[in-house]
Write a protein that binds this DNA or RNA. Sequence first.
DNA 1: ACAATAGTGTCTATGAGACATTATACG
DNA 2: CGTATAATGTCTCATAGACACTATTGT
Lengths: 229, 229
Amino acid sequence: MDVDPFSFAVAADLVVLTIRERVLHVLLVERGIEPAVGMWALPGGFVLPEEDAEATAYRELAEETGVTAGVHLEQVRTYSAPDRDPRGRVVTVAWLALAPDLGEPSAGSDARSARWWPVSDVESGALSLAFDHVAIFGDALERARAKLEYSALATAFCPPEFTIAQLRAVYEAVWGVPVDPRNFHRKITGTPGFVEPTGEVVRDGGRPAQLFRRGPVSQLQPPFTRPEH
Amino acid sequence: MDVDPFSFAVAADLVVLTIRERVLHVLLVERGIEPAVGMWALPGGFVLPEEDAEATAYRELAEETGVTAGVHLEQVRTYSAPDRDPRGRVVTVAWLALAPDLGEPSAGSDARSARWWPVSDVESGALSLAFDHVAIFGDALERARAKLEYSALATAFCPPEFTIAQLRAVYEAVWGVPVDPRNFHRKITGTPGFVEPTGEVVRDGGRPAQLFRRGPVSQLQPPFTRPEH
DNA sequence: ACAATAGTGTCTATGAGACATTATACG
DNA sequence: CGTATAATGTCTCATAGACACTATTGT
């Protein structure tokens, strides 16, 4: 026998995205323990002996935000560079979580604080992250942007009932580009199963808007592509 | 401190696909050591202390096929169910590899034999796999099928120089559906940067076909969608 | 009335898909 | 010559994108 292979730690790190005041935000925690104390990082933690990585992701999500219901969670990819964590061989499974606006987060036990940051602050490099978390963040963000095109994922950013305009605001916030309201409305309502009308309307200083909930369809065929991609 | 988190093994498992005689095949090994001796499984192995998971995948690929150059390798996802391996907590990172027809594989040290199997034998359930390898295989196969639509991945199944008909055979083998030769030709040659003509031709009992090599473009815009998806 | 937002209609350019036609080899 | 495969052309229908227009509220 060469070497004991059972000497790795496995972690789950989360890229939690939400939309606050029409701007895409990511949840970050200020680290309260070594290593990288005081730096901002993705929320996450070690996989426990009886857990799979998805359970770890849900647990960490609940610790930081207080909720798991109604949140979309999907695996992005795994990062395993030998030197990515100074504590030793820590392999991390990255998860993308999309949530409706959740309010202020609560810092976990090993964090000094937690807050929502505009993704542009991280993308621009104005805010640097611990470990390889910038790369993880970038991969997850691109996944979210790409998936809006061919899936019904955008509804994951909305409350259970929403208007077409709210859904359009999701696309505009995630892609960072304006979307034509008329064509968007035709596209969405013309895709059977994407959204279903509730019959209710909501009033807000103009013609009342129909309320919808997400429909059974998860794949958009044909896709709704972002401009100049 | 609760529990030592450094008690996991991390493995890399490979779904290696190739096309042999117009049929999509997957590389499988017959296990020669416990557990699951005698069962067919995906090739793979443990990540070593100084490696990242990608290096492990390349190493295993070289051991089984003898080559790594010219092979497309990409991460699929990670499987971490606590009971997925009877030896203990083994988390595996799955990789998708696409290769031109490579000839017969060689069994690694812990394998009794290795061979190419038609993917239909695994998909149909006629051949069952060890551990959770059927699920891994299914996820990787679907990834390959989906990526043909919006990327230039199909060229990874071809030798450095190929004809449009060869490339079309890739789509037909992976998707399992016929593709119209005329529309395919127009679509491929009409997408700038997908393939580049070498100027050479190849003769095979009809009008000679132009040879092409892959171009710099990796994303297909607009995509080439499979029928009735 | 006017402003504001929701929702519909119309036009055009582009691409997919079906399929005819031409081009260039071999026997 | 016929047969086989490569490559191009033509037609139709569906959809994206641009944008005019109508509908229904609040002030």
